[in-house]
Amino acid sequence: MFKTEISPTGRHSSNAARAIAVVGQLALGIVALLTLYPILFILMTSFKSTTDVITKPFAVTKMMLDNYAVAWKLGHVAEYFLNSAIVTVVTLIFQLVITIMAAYAFGKLRPRGHNALLLLYLTALFITIEMTTVPVFMLLKDLGLIHTRWGLILPYTASGVVMGIYIMTNFVKGLPKEVDEAAVVDGASLFQILIKIDIPLISPVIATVVIINFQHAWSEFYWALIAVKDEALKTLPLGLINFQSEYGSDYGVLAAGLMILTIPVLIVYLYCSKYFIEGVAVGAVKG
């Protein structure tokens, strides 16, 4: 029988690697806890009475499920939620159509001068919404779109497509050309190739763009405060300001309203999370 000996140097390096892995996992756990704690605290607060919030901020002695009913009905959160849903869904549809078509042109078709045009287009990343507030407001006012849902949808669409095109173009450039060439030989049109072949291949980056743009359109407050004054058209972030003034002393109901604002973002992220890291990594590196 032969005995395999492990050198002290090998044991020490193995132990060191194991210790580094444990420390890394602990660090990631602490970061995750610090990130999730505010959400968990608001969730816990949303089930409390006002007395429990003040006297027992870290405990729940009585579950107040009615807080969500009060926020949804009496606080008009249902109307704000519907407005936000309409604006966000329409915005995402427009953004995806524009982003996919532009990224396909820049990354796959590559017409003459596409690099210069893409570079010019990406300069919009350096322009903030504060810089364009006045001209955009005047333009939409002349078009009669201020104080309408379109006054939110169009600026939201424009603000989200630039980053989406940047990420998606780098992803599209890495798609195999052989599949498209085989489809052309079989008689497929350019539109059929895009819909049936390329869009399924870029689904990871599509999910990434959806997460980023959904969060922005759903939670945006600055432009909504300027462009919408009609109470019936206010989105959820904007409507929660009135909600806070009315239920500011009822912390449980107020926390319930905040959770209603947060839950859709969490659902979209969890649904698309399996694609998110892959889409960001590939889109940032390829090209």
Rank of each mutant, 00 (worst) to 15 (best):
D52I: 03
L190A: 14
I167E: 02
V97I: 15
A17Q: 13
P111M: 11
H216S: 12
I127S: 11
K229C: 03
I100F: 03
L43A: 04
Y37R: 06
I199Q: 03
K173W: 07
E5K: 11
I42N: 03
T55W: 10
I226P: 00
R18K: 14
S13A: 12
W150K: 04
P237D: 01
G252S: 04
T51I: 14
I226L: 06
Y222M: 08
R18T: 10
I267C: 02
M259H: 02
G10R: 09
T99G: 00
G252D: 03
L258G: 15
S13P: 00
I98R: 04
E181F: 08
A255E: 03
E5D: 09
G29C: 11
V53C: 01
G24A: 02
S159F: 13
E178V: 08
I30P: 05
H76I: 05
I197E: 13
I153W: 00
A224E: 07
V60E: 02
Q192L: 07
L26S: 14
F191D: 11
V23E: 12
L82G: 10
P237M: 03
V184C: 06
D142H: 09
I199E: 03
T148Q: 11
D186C: 07
L238C: 01
L65R: 06
D180P: 00
Y247D: 07
L28C: 12
A207L: 02
A256D: 01
G151S: 05
N83R: 06
L266I: 07
P38W: 06
L122M: 10
A124D: 14
L225M: 14
L233K: 06
Y247T: 03
T235L: 04
F94P: 00
A281W: 06
L194E: 09
L117Y: 09
F94R: 03
Q215W: 08
P8A: 11
K177Y: 10
Q244N: 13
Y80M: 11
V97W: 11
I277D: 15
A105S: 15
E5W: 09
Y80S: 11
H114Q: 14
A255P: 03
I20N: 07
I30A: 15
